[in-house]
Design a protein around this nucleic acid. Sequence first.
DNA 1: CCTATTTTAGACTGTACAGTATGAAAGGAA
DNA 2: TTCCTTTCATACTGTACAGTCTAAAATAGG
Lengths: 194, 194
Amino acid sequence: MAGRPRTFDAGEALERAMVVFLARGFERASIDELSEATGVVRQSLYHTFGDKRALFLKALDHYGYTRFQWLIDELGRDRPVMESIRAVLNGWADRVSKSGFKGCLVCNSLIEFADQDKDVAAICDKHNGRIEKAFRDAIARGKERGELAASIDERAVAEFFANLGQGLALQGRRGIQRQKAAEICAVAEAVLAG
Amino acid sequence: MAGRPRTFDAGEALERAMVVFLARGFERASIDELSEATGVVRQSLYHTFGDKRALFLKALDHYGYTRFQWLIDELGRDRPVMESIRAVLNGWADRVSKSGFKGCLVCNSLIEFADQDKDVAAICDKHNGRIEKAFRDAIARGKERGELAASIDERAVAEFFANLGQGLALQGRRGIQRQKAAEICAVAEAVLAG
DNA sequence: CCTATTTTAGACTGTACAGTATGAAAGGAA
DNA sequence: TTCCTTTCATACTGTACAGTCTAAAATAGG
């Protein structure tokens, strides 16, 4: 009951497939392209991941868990909440303006699939929810500690920041200057100042 | 030097093709689909507009000029600038949460083409620029009139609001509740409060 | 009415691609 | 070594689609 062992690492292949989907989108990424990028032959891709859509769903979820962790970590750190928020805004400005930035796979997929694919939509909702929750918790903690005004609606502000990030990711896909992204973030920061 | 006159209205056809591109994206919209939606036969589409990409570029530009005019008008009206800004934010909240909202063709195209198609990118830049300018001028006017603090950087704030709109359009494509969109807008409005 | 010109209708071509089938290669287990 | 399972390599199939070709239909001008 043994056979030839797998000659590739499935996690590594998923990561590389994800990069292709990020750059090209689901529709434009061909199996040949994915095969070449992962170094895994066509047949093995189908055997390991199922069809193209199944591979995409795994890649999308993988993206959400790996690419948003820094943000959740920053917002979870034990320090004044404004420092955490600023760290995220800085992180965004850096990332979206970096040469070679290809956007956010969650945002890109929302555009490509809209609400036509329930599984895609569910994964996107999940990760958007994780981001909003991280902001919400951080802001609520800031209120408890008296760092932020009690009148602040943490849910609304969290939604606002998540929306900000999506806008930046969208603009970053086209290409955005570091300074412009930073200016936008600086303006946004003011919603917590009053 | 005469011939059979055109039996369709080219402007109407462009508008309908635009709707298809908005709902489906460039890649997924097939010529057959465009032909059916416009009521113009395949050959006439090619004759009138050139190839699929040329039709798309015209549709994209048409979108920018027709779908952003309300915003430019609102921001150009002679009244307190905060009223104008609120009108735009309300307009956005209404539009992006409306059932059947399919996103913004400029935003969708930025995702689909990124910076790979220079003509698409140029048209998107042009219309984004028009929106930013409308905000910038309105805010500058508000400063001159003493309605807004002189310390406000109208360029940065205009970029911020344009980014806000892009985020809302992105979320609207998936589907967003009116209330959530309005909450985000309400938070954003605060950047001009201080 | 005749002719030139343009639209219409549908068939056709070539290409790109997702997914499948088939047999060879490779390595663990007995 | 021998067998069995799994991967690898490549050929194949069917479909979808952009763009072209050909001929018929329609109409303004002479």
